[in-house]
C-alpha cells in the first residue's frame, strides 16, 4: 500500500509506473485472471445447464427412436437406437405438418398486420396530445397483455360458444343471428382475434415509448412549416419509430411461429381444431400424447431453424435501415 500510493501522484516525467507494474504483475495476474471467470461461472453454468445442454440433447434425440421387438411387452423389449434422418423425413413428409405450417402462415398474415397496425394507430393517437384520458386509455389498451394466454382463450372461448355467449344473446335480442365463430370457416379468425386482443397493448407501449423519445422541437419546426397532425404522424413520427416497428415485427413473427396456448385451450371446445393445428401442437402431441419424444425433437429442431432463418433473415434484410439511424 505504502509503495503504491506515492506512485499514483508521481510526476509524469519520472515515470515510475512501468517499474511498479512489472514488480507487482506476477502476483496480481495469478489471482486476477480467474476473477472474470468466477463472475462468469454462474451465467455459464446456467447457460450450459438450461439452454445449451437441452438443445444438444434435443438434437441427439432427434436422430434416435425407440424400436420394439415382437409384441413389445415386458422389460427389455424396447430399445433406443440411431435412425439417422428418419424422424426428419417423417416430419416433413407428414401432410398434417405441412397443413399446420400453412395454417400458421395464414394466421400470421392475419395477426401481424392487424396487431401492429392497431398498435401503431393507438400509439399515434395517444401521442397526439389530444386525448383527454390518455393515462386510462393507455392502461386499458395494455391490460389484456397482462392476461395469460390460457385465461384469455378461456374467456374468449366462453364468448364464442353460441349457447353460453352473452354476445350471441344480445345479438339475438336485436334479431341478428350471430355466425358460429367456432366453425371451420371462421376458427382462424377466432384464434387470431385472441392474439390481437392480447398482443396489441404490448406493441402499442413499445411504439408509444419510442414516440415519446422524439424531441418536441422537431414537431415545432414541422408546425412552423405548416404541417398538419396527420402529416407530422406520417412524415416524422412513423419514419422515426421504424426501428421500433421492426423490433415489434420480429417479436410478433416469433410469437406467430410459436402459437400454441390459444388453439390448445380452444381445442376441446369444438371439432374444428385438430391436435396438429399448429406446428408446436404437433410437437406437443408427439411428445406427450404419443410418447414419441424423438419425432417431437426433430420437429422442434425444424421449427427452431425456421424461426432462426426467418427472424435473422428479416433483420439482415432491413438491418441497415433499422439500425443505422440509431448509430
Amino acid at each position: 500500500m505504502s509503495t503504491r500510493a506515492p506512485s499514483l501522484i508521481a510526476p509524469a516525467g519520472t515515470d515510475p509506473a512501468p517499474a511498479l507494474t512489472r514488480a507487482t504483475q506476477p502476483r496480481y495476474r495469478a489471482s486476477n485472471a480467474a476473477v472474470p471467470y468466477a463472475f462468469l461461472a454462474p451465467a455459464i453454468l446456467l447457460f450450459v445447464a438450461f439452454l445449451a445442454a437441452p438443445i444438444f440433447y434435443s438434437l441427439y434425440l432427434s436422430f434416435r427412436a425407440a424400436k420394439v421387438k415382437g409384441l413389445g411387452l415386458g422389460s427389455g423389449s424396447r430399445t433406443e437406437q440411431w435412425v439417422g434422418m428418419e424422424n426428419y423425413v417423417r416430419s416433413v413428409a407428414d401432410p398434417e405438418f405441412l397443413a399446420s405450417v400453412g395454417r400458421v402462415a395464414l394466421y400470421g398474415l392475419i395477426v401481424v398486420p392487424t396487431m401492429l397496425g392497431l398498435a401503431l394507430l393507438f400509439a399515434l393517437l395517444l401521442d397526439s396530445g389530444r386525448t383527454r384520458v390518455g393515462g386510462f386509455s393507455r392502461t386499458a389498451i395494455f391490460l389484456p397483455y397482462a392476461v395469460p394466454a390460457v385465461v384469455a382463450s378461456l374467456l374468449w372461448g366462453f364468448l364464442y360458444l353460441p349457447r353460453v355467449s352473452p354476445v350471441v344473446d344480445v345479438l339475438g335480442l336485436v334479431g341478428v343471428s350471430a355466425p358460429n365463430v367456432m366453425s371451420s370457416q371462421l376458427i382462424m379468425f377466432a384464434v387470431a382475434n385472441i392474439a390481437v386482443w392480447g398482443g396489441t397493448g404490448f406493441n402499442m407501449i413499445v411504439l408509444y415509448t419510442a414516440l415519446k423519445s422524439i424531441p418536441s422541437d422537431i414537431y415545432e419546426a414541422a408546425r412552423l412549416d405548416g404541417a398538419s397532425d396527420v402529416q407530422i404522424a406520417l412524415r416524422i413520427k412513423i419514419p422515426i419509430v421504424v426501428p421500433s416497428m421492426i423490433m415489434t415485427f420480429v417479436f410478433s413473427l416469433i410469437a406467430t411461429l410459436q402459437v400454441f396456448a390459444e388453439p390448445m385451450t380452444l381445442r376441446p371446445l369444438s371439432n374444428t381444431i385438430s391436435t396438429t393445428w399448429t406446428p408446436l401442437m404437433k410437437v406437443y402431441r408427439d411428445a406427450f400424447v404419443r410418447n414419441d419424444v424423438y419425432s417431437a425433437a426433430a420437429t422442434s429442431v425444424l421449427i427452431a431453424l425456421a424461426t432462426f432463418v426467418l427472424s435473422f433473415g428479416f433483420l439482415k434484410l432491413v438491418g441497415s435501415r433499422a439500425f443505422n439511424q440509431e448509430k
Binding site: N271, S274, T275, V289, N291
Partner: peptide, 20 residues
Amino acid sequence: GPNVNVAYSAYKDAFGKAAE
C-alpha cells in the same frame, strides 16, 4: 393395444372433421 394414445388422438382429429 400398446398405442391407444395414438389411436385416440387420431379419433379426435378424424371424427372432429367428420362431425364438423
